[in-house]
């Protein structure tokens, strides 16, 4: 079973842009945007994966670091467990389709996250729960056009503009720089309906793992929070891991 990029803190955003596997087909000077996304998908798709990620949340006064174990199966199933710091240790998140649950070890409660809270930053980071939830139907949600060929950190990229077909999505407009060789969105600018720049996502330190080009470092800057940024670093990543069904169940959430 082939799927797109799984729910993973280090990779979540990539899932927005990858759907189908197809080579980039140049139409004149610029490639066809749909096919460009398909090619990106071909680089990133997998069945299962397990990773250990550190998330560094930096604001104007503090820097704090979280370590997480992530299991993902396909596009719709993901499980995250916080390994450190001590205060957050044992906190778990489970994504099944369009639903997101949270397990809070201190309260020993499983809560489904909904409504306004989806827009809040996960553990106070610049990544909202909503950011983690969406991105399964990018092709349906956005209409993309290739705007230019550009250089990003000295590497050639295709610059795309993606406009949402539906105003209800979190980011009605995105501007992406897709690396021509690695086929990953090296930089994204996420805009509100008003045209205000909300977030900037960058992906660097690309490594080849199991024949795929994988960004090991991702930085998210919330432009509405001065001096705030979140850095995600994948420490360990394995594809094709044999994951039991229980991992993606509410029983796993409550298991100590």
């Amino acid at each position: 079973m082939k799927h797109l990029l799984n729910f993973n803190l280090g990779m979540a955003v990539l899932s927005f842009f990858v759907h189908l596997a197809a080579p980039v087909a140049l139409a004149g000077e610029f490639p066809d945007p749909v096919q460009l996304l398909h090619s990106m998908d071909a680089n990133l798709q997998f069945d299962t994966r397990t990773s250990i990620t550190t998330m560094q949340v930096v604001d104007s006064r503090h820097t704090r670091e979280y370590r997480m174990l992530t299991h993902a199966r396909g596009l719709d199933e993901a499980a995250v467990e916080y390994l450190s710091p001590e205060r957050e240790k044992g906190t778990k998140m489970l994504k099944l389709g369009d639903n997101l649950w949270l397990y809070l070890p201190r309260s020993e409660r499983v809560q489904k996250i909904s409504g306004h809270m989806l827009r809040q930053g996960m553990m106070g980071s610049d990544i909202s729960y909503e950011d983690l939830m969406q991105g399964t139907d990018f092709e349906d949600m956005y209409e993309a056009t290739v705007k230019a060929e550009d250089l990003l950190d000295g590497r050639p990229c295709w610059k795309l503009e993606a406009i949402a077909r539906d105003d209800t999505v979190s980011y009605p407009r995105r501007v992406l720089w897709i690396d021509e060789e690695w086929l990953i969105p090296s930089r994204q600018e996420l805009y509100a309906l008003s045209g205000m720049l909300l977030k900037v996502w960058t992906m660097t330190e690309v490594r080849e793992i199991a024949g795929r080009q994988v960004p090991m470092l991702m930085e998210i800057e919330d432009k509405l929070k001065q001096g705030s940024r979140t850095v995600l670093r994948i420490e360990d990543l394995q594809f094709g891991v044999d994951l039991e069904d229980e991992v993606f169940s509410q029983r796993w959430l409550e298991r100590r």
């Binding site: 949340v57 604001d59 006064r61 503090h62 704090r64 205060r87 957050e88 906190t91 809070l104 201190r106 309260s107 020993e108 409660r109 809560q111 809270m117 930053g121 996960m122 553990m123 106070g124």
Partner: peptide, 16 residues
Amino acid sequence: VLLLGRTYYGSMSDTK
């Protein structure tokens, strides 16, 4: 009831 707040450094913090 579950009360979900945040620590002074922004991390999620709960109590029931």
